[in-house]
């Protein structure tokens, strides 16, 4: 399973488990069950949305759209659950489509899990806003369960443009 150019049936169980994790995330985020979603991530997890013009940049020297360490990720969830989070109150109706799930070993005991996404965001009196791109997540196994250690949502668009903001968890 080290060679992504060849199909390895031995990889299949892990790939399905990773796919399940992506689907579970999508389900919880679309349902705004943010605490349950948070439990899919490690305690020290980080969450990134790189800028459209530097999709593979480093948040330490590049201005991102989102670059949360675990402290700010916690605060982001606090904010999103607050009715004073005006950009997401009432909460947007989102619908996530996940496909092209791939998994490869990364450094140490981590796996690199990738998937393509389409996220539709719907609000009253507004056109649907469509976000497409790729998730690149670093996964670890903790007490038998796969957990997201780092979550990165890379947008395809050349600019954020009509998407406006990333006010919900992409």
């Amino acid at each position: 399973m080290n060679d992504p150019a060849h199909y390895d049936p031995a990889n299949e169980a892990l790939r399905r488990e990773v796919e399940w994790l992506f689907y579970r995330e999508a389900e919880l985020l679309d349902a705004w069950k943010l605490d349950e979603w948070r439990a899919l991530l490690t305690e020290d997890a980080s969450y990134f949305v790189p800028p459209n013009d530097k999709p593979h940049g480093d948040h330490n020297n590049t201005l991102f759209i989102v670059a949360d360490d675990h402290v700010r990720l916690h605060e982001r969830i606090v904010r999103l659950k607050d009715p004073n989070c005006h950009s997401e109150y009432p909460p947007s109706r989102t619908r996530r489509f996940i496909s092209n799930v791939r998994v490869t070993p990364a450094s140490g005991n981590e796996w690199l899990a990738r998937a393509n996404f389409i996220v539709h965001r719907n609000r009253r009196n507004s056109d649907v806003r469509i976000f497409t791109g790729e998730y690149i997540n670093r996964l670890v196994r903790l007490n038998g369960a796969l957990k997201i250690h780092e979550r990165r949502a890379i947008l395809d668009a050349e600019e954020l443009g009509a998407m406006g903001a990333v006010s919900f968890i992409l």
Binding site: P50, D53, K54, G57, N61, T62, F64, G164
Partner: peptide
């Protein structure tokens, strides 16, 4: 100017 551009529309 630091690398990374935020470009977005406001209606």
């Amino acid at each position: 100017i630091i690398s990374g551009t935020q470009e977005y529309d406001i209606r």
